[in-house]
């Protein structure tokens, strides 16, 4: 595959931007979580790209760790969502705004 390094990085940047926009636009916490996953994947793509262009496997190892932590995060995050839903009967992030100053 002979595609310029920049192309991968630009793909990564756009994927990240989409995830970012989605996180800020959507109210549904579950979807917001998916957007977080999108951003994590965007970063993973960048890591893998750099690993290849520098010929260093360390970038791939970091991706591996990111995946582990992402899995952990999903587990805990979804558990929190379930707990919040039990209390509020809602998955809207805007409903959880008692910290308003």
């Amino acid at each position: 595959m002979n595609v310029p390094t920049n192309a991968y990085l630009i793909f990564s940047a756009l994927l990240f931007a989409i995830g970012m926009a989605g996180f800020m636009i959507r109210r549904n916490v579950i979807v917001m979580f998916m957007c977080v996953e999108l951003m994590l994947n965007a970063v993973n793509v960048a890591f893998v790209t750099f690993a290849r262009s520098f010929g260093d496997v360390a970038g791939q190892v970091i991706v591996f760790f990111v995946m582990v932590i992402a899995a952990v995060e999903v587990v805990v995050g979804l558990a929190i969502i379930v707990a919040i839903y039990r209390r509020r009967e809602s998955v809207s992030a805007d409903d959880a705004s008692v910290m308003k100053g």
């Binding site: 595959m1 002979n2 310029p4 390094t5 920049n6 690993a51 010929g55 791939q60």
Partner: peptide
């Protein structure tokens, strides 16, 4: 600041 060149296939990843 990035590289416009195609990727090297120097390493056997």
């Amino acid at each position: 600041y990035g590289s416009g060149a195609p990727q090297a296939e120097a390493i056997a990843l």
